[in-house]
Design a protein around this nucleic acid. Structure first.
Lengths: 210, 210
DNA sequence: TTAAAACGAGTGAGCGTTCGCTCAATAAAA
DNA sequence: TTTTATTGAGCGAACGCTCACTCGTTTTAA
């Protein structure tokens, strides 16, 4: 990533952190407004409060900014999620807790999550797989909760593939609502959305594509 | 959209159709491979089998191609869906039929649907709202089936907002999977995916974010 | 003969990136 | 204390390249 090009030998680590945070904050705002591709490096620099020259003291390429943004969003999601899951419940209670927390966090961070899923594909291969690995970790967390609930008989018994799919299903429910929200261009919280699911036996509606 | 710039007065309508189809076909292939932004107009022209100059005889801007592609994908989805829905069922059967057909069509057209939902945001405002209008029409179709089933007591009674959300929910289920498939970078059909949903009472899992 | 259709080198704007410079702060020397 | 040297953060004009789009010419076909 941002290999120092030799413009200076030693940099104040603390300052690098500060600049990066300014940069990420501004970039998130711009990406929300116009997406990664339509945002120029000059705009990013300006929004962060310094010049284009300075920007390149802290990053190696435009794509580095996208990576920083995606990474920081994931870290934030993860941090908040862990905070919610501090008290350790078990079985069905844990599964409920995991889902509720996930949805809550995604609801709080709708815009950021949307950026991630709309822009991640522009990341260079290596950074992308790094970000997706973090995503996989979160899915694994959900999957473990599903497995526990299934083993305890709180939900139907599932084979490993089914567990994986269900975990993906839960992960995606949050992501997609933010996406759908963009498509229909309408404000609505994830909780409102999931409330309807709760009311219905979705299984009775979901039929197999023949 | 593609206002003719006056390069020529009268054009053979049939030829325009042929060229557009060549263009769309090639563009879909390229967008699948590298996305809209990374595809150049020269590449599009080449893939379609003519030169860059000729390309601009048939379109006004690069974004026009994206619009043509999105529009044609929607038309195709719509056509296939209508074909499935030819025999008119009613009530719960109709709802089942609508969902099954929708999933089937989306399964058949995963790549194209993915293009739409990943690239539509790059459309100029006017074209975007035009495409979204078509999307809304399809959602309305689903919603009417939901309403019928609800009124007949085949599913729980729902207020209008709930019906709308449920319809969106069904629409997104298909989109979701094509998208998730990209994220986890794994092949899986929508039918496999929905089969798991069918097996579970999702309502018992989905709790409200408090 | 003429007009539509195809062509592709050319154009210029935009943008990511670079690099030589400024300047304040700090350190070293006088 | 004052002067001089060093450092490194910040800067932004300029560079080079890409790419959407144009236009004068050539080909085709009626």
């Amino acid at each position: 990533m941002q290999k120092k090009k030799v413009p200076s030998m030693v940099k104040d680590e603390q300052l690098i952190q500060i600049r990066r945070e300014q940069l990420i904050k501004g970039a998130v705002k711009l990406f929300k407004e116009k997406g990664f591709h339509r945002t120029t490096t000059r705009e990013m620099a300006k929004e962060a409060g310094f010049s284009i020259g300075t920007l390149y003291e802290y990053i190696g390429s435009k794509e580095d900014v996208l990576y920083l943004v995606c990474d920081s969003i994931y870290e934030e999601v993860r941090t908040r999620l862990d905070a919610h899951l501090a008290k350790n419940e078990a079985g069905m209670d844990r599964l409920r807790q995991v889902i509720a927390s996930l949805f809550k966090v995604m609801d709080e961070m709708q815009d950021e999550v949307l950026i991630m899923y709309q822009e991640a594909k522009s990341l260079p291969k290596e950074s992308l797989s790094y970000v997706l690995k973090k995503e996989a970790e979160m899915t694994a967390l959900v999957e473990s909760a599903v497995r526990e609930a299934s083993e305890q008989g709180s939900i139907a018994p599932l084979d490993p593939t089914e567990m994986e799919i269900l975990a993906n299903n839960i992960m995606v429910a949050g992501q997609m609502w933010t996406f759908r929200r963009w498509t229909v261009q309408k404000a609505c919280t994830l909780s409102e959305y999931t409330a309807v699911q709760s009311k219905l036996l979705l299984s009775s509606l979901t039929v197999e594509a023949k």
